[in-house]
Simulated assay, not measured.
Amino acid sequence: MNWNVYLSGEIHTAWRQQIVEACQQAQLPVEFTSAVTDHQASDAAGDVLGEQDQAYWRDHQSAKVNALRTRTLIQNCDVAVIRFGDKYKQWNAAFDAGYCAALGKPYITLHSADLTHPLKEVDAAAMAWAQSPEQVVEVLIYTTRR
């Protein structure tokens, strides 16, 4: 079986690439999908539908266009990895975790120990909490090879 792994969350570090490369090196039967990680492209996703006078409506329009991608990819994944970084609040990642939970999609949270309290409900619904990309890879190795 090939596993479809959706990578969600923080876009300012190389955690996605670390997981992808380590899984390739381990020759795991996984394919990866992700939200758009180019911040400007994501913010402008709805601009093709017309210019908006207010920032709220531009964000609203772009959020809906982005949701076409993220909802479809989450619905089609076998497992999601949801990264919460230290520098920015990842509200979209929290939404993705909630969406996974609502769909019954298993997910792994990836964040440092200092975020354990604010993410307690998100972690409670997760199948695993990892503190490093290497731990995520180890979970994927176990899951896909057993």
Rank of each mutant, 00 (worst) to 15 (best):
H111T: 09
T13D: 14
R83G: 01
Q27W: 03
R83A: 14
E121A: 07
E21K: 09
T144L: 12
V81I: 15
A101Q: 15
G9V: 09
L28S: 00
A80I: 11
V65Q: 00
Y88K: 14
G98L: 07
A97Q: 08
A44I: 07
A126F: 08
Y99S: 08
R58V: 04
S8P: 00
G46I: 15
Q61D: 07
A63R: 09
A94C: 05
K87T: 11
N76Q: 13
A26L: 03
K87M: 06
N4P: 00
Q131K: 13
I74A: 01
V36S: 02
Y142F: 14
T70D: 10
A26K: 07
D59E: 12
Q17I: 06
D43T: 05
A130F: 07
Q61S: 14
A130T: 05
S62N: 00
L49S: 08
H117Q: 11
R145Y: 02
A125Y: 11
P29M: 02
N4D: 01
N76H: 10
S62H: 01
V122I: 15
V122T: 15
A55I: 15
W129G: 01
P133C: 12
P106Q: 13
V20I: 15
A44F: 11
V5C: 04
L110R: 14
E121V: 11
T72F: 07
T33Q: 03
K120S: 08
H39Q: 13
V5P: 00
G50S: 12
I11N: 10
L28K: 00
T70I: 01
Y88S: 08
P118D: 12
C77P: 07
A63N: 02
R16M: 08
Q27C: 01
S42L: 11
T33D: 00
V30E: 01
A125L: 13
I74H: 02
P133W: 04
V36L: 07
T33V: 05
A80T: 06
W91Y: 10
F84W: 03
C100K: 09
C77V: 06
R16K: 10
Q18M: 13
A130E: 03
A55E: 11
A14D: 15
A35V: 02
A128D: 06
F32V: 02
T70F: 02
L49Q: 12
P118L: 10
R58Y: 05
A67Q: 04
A22F: 05
M127G: 09
L68F: 05
A97Y: 06
Q24C: 04
K105W: 10
D114K: 06
L73P: 00
S62M: 01
V79L: 15
F95I: 13
T13Q: 10
H117S: 12
S42Y: 12
S112C: 07
S8C: 11
N4S: 03
T33M: 02
V79D: 04
A126T: 10
A128M: 13
V30G: 01
Q24H: 13
T37E: 02
Q18C: 09
E21F: 08
E10Q: 08
H12M: 05
C100L: 05
R146G: 13
D53W: 14
G98W: 11
I141C: 08
V137E: 09
V136H: 11
V122E: 03
D59T: 06
R145N: 10
T143H: 10
Q17L: 08
A125R: 13
D96N: 12
F95A: 07
V36D: 08
V65G: 00
